[in-house]
Design a protein around this nucleic acid. Structure first.
Lengths: 130, 130, 130, 130
DNA sequence: GTGGTCTAGACCACA
DNA sequence: GTGGTCTAGACCACG
C-alpha cells in the first residue's frame, strides 16, 4: 500500500478499513484479518495497525472479542451513518478546496464531468490504488 | 489560522499562500508580508513559515529579493500551471475518495449539486476560516 | 569537521555527503548514519544536518524510509550525473576564477602541474581535513 | 553583477576588486570609483561596498586619502604578492575539490583541457560574468 | 527592518 | 531508536 507521507499512516489505515466496510468488502459481523495479517496486507508495522484499530474500536465501528479477533459491527445503521458521514466530509472538503481555488459551482461540476469522461485515473498516493 | 493537525503546518501554510496567489489576493510581483508578519497572521512560528516559503522558493512560485522581501513570481504562466495542478489534484483526490466509498459518477455529481443547493457550509478545517 | 564560515553549514554538509557518495564511501542503497549520529560526526546541530538531508531528498539523491533511516539512492545513473555535475561546476568555477586572474589556458595548466609535482598540500578549508 | 548567494556579497565585491587590480584594469595608485559609484556598478548597497573596502584598507591593498577617495596601493610588490596568493588559493582549492571527487591528477588535467577546448563558458554565478 | 542560518530542546509517528 | 516537525530565541548579512 502506498502511503501519503503528509498524513499519519494509522489514519490512512483507518480510511482503508472504512472503505472496506462501506463497500461491503467487509460485511457486518465479519471477522477482520488478524492484526499481523493486516500489517502484512497494508505493509505497515503491527503497532501502527493496532493504533488504527484501537480508534475504530472506541468509535464502535469494529468490536473486539477476546481471544477471537476483531469484528465489523453488526449494527447496520452504524455503518450507514459512517458512510453518510464520510461522504459528507469528502464532498464538503472538496467543495471548499475547489471553491477556494476560485472555481464557481458550475466550474466545479464541469471539472468533475471532464475528469470522469477522461477516465483518467492518474491516482497515486491514495489509499485505494493498491 | 486553525490547523489540521493531521498535516504538517508548513504544508498548510503553503496551501494558504497558494490560494492567495491563485485567487489574486496576492498579485503577480506583489510583495509578500514579511516572514515575521506572516508568522503572526497565521499564528505559527517564524521558522515554520520560513520552511513553507523555502519550498515555494525552490518551486519558483515566489522569488526572494535580498534584504527587500519575498515576491510573488511575475511569471503568470507559472501561476496558471500552479492553479491547474492544484485543481487537478483536488478533483482527482475527491473523485477517488468518493468512488472508493462506492458512489457512482452520477451519485458523485448529485451529491455535489445537493451540497451546493443546500448552501450549507458546515465547513470545518478549511483554509478560509482559519 | 571544520567549517568555512563563508558558506552555510548545511551546504558544506551536503558537499561532504556528495563526496562520500561519489567516492563510494557510501554505496548505492547503503544506509546513511542516523541524523543524530551524523550531527555528532560533523559536529553540527541535528536540525542543520536535517536541512542538508531534506534538500538531498528533494534532489532524490537520498531516499528516506519511514522509521528505518535514510538511504543512498540505488539509481546509479543518478549518482553518475551527480558526479559529472559537481566536476563540471568545479572545473568551470576554477577556470573562470583563474582566467579572471589573468592566467592564460596554458598558464592554468602549468600552475596545476607544478602544484601536483610539489605534492604540496597546503590545504585549508577542504572537505577532507574537517 | 550576479551574486552567488551562498557567499557574503561583501566578499564577492572584494574578489571583484582584487581581480580589477591584478588584471591592471585598476592601475597601482589609481583612484577607485566613489563608493556610491561602485555600489551602482556592482548593483549592491553602499554599506555593503563600504564593508568590502574597509577590509581591503586594513589589508593595505587600497589606501584611503581623506577627502579625496580611495586609491590602489602603489606598492607593486604588494600587488604581485596578492596575485600569487589568490592564484595559489584557487589552484589549491580546485585541486582538492576535484581530488575529493575521485579524480586523479591526470583526469583533472584532462577535464581542464577538454573544458578549454569546448570554449564553453557556461558561467553563471561568478564575479566575472557581468 | 528583512530574510537567512543556526542552536537547543521538545514532542510525535513509525519500526 | 529513527526521522519529521515545531518552537523559541539568537545572530548575521543586507538595504
Amino acid at each position: 500500500m502506498k502511503f501519503d507521507d503528509k498524513v499519519p499512516i494509522y489514519y490512512q489505515i483507518k480510511n482503508y478499513l472504512y472503505h472496506q466496510i462501506i463497500t461491503g468488502e467487509l460485511q457486518p459481523g465479519e471477522k477482520l484479518p488478524s492484526v499481523r495479517q493486516l500489517a502484512i496486507d497494508v505493509t505497515a508495522n503491527v503497532n501502527t495497525v493496532q493504533r488504527a484499530l484501537s480508534e475504530m474500536i472506541t468509535e464502535e465501528v469494529i468490536v473486539p472479542q477476546r481471544g477471537k479477533g476483531n469484528f465489523v459491527t453488526t449494527d447496520v445503521k452504524e455503518i450507514e451513518q459512517l458512510k453518510s458521514k464520510l461522504v459528507n466530509e469528502q464532498i464538503s472538503l472538496a467543495y471548499q478546496q475547489l471553491h477556494a481555488l476560485d472555481l464557481s459551482d458550475d466550474e466545479i461540476l464541469t471539472e468533475f464531468k471532464q475528469f470522469m469522461e477522461d477516465g483518467d485515473v492518474q491516482n497515486e498516493r491514495t489509499i485505494e490504488d493498491r
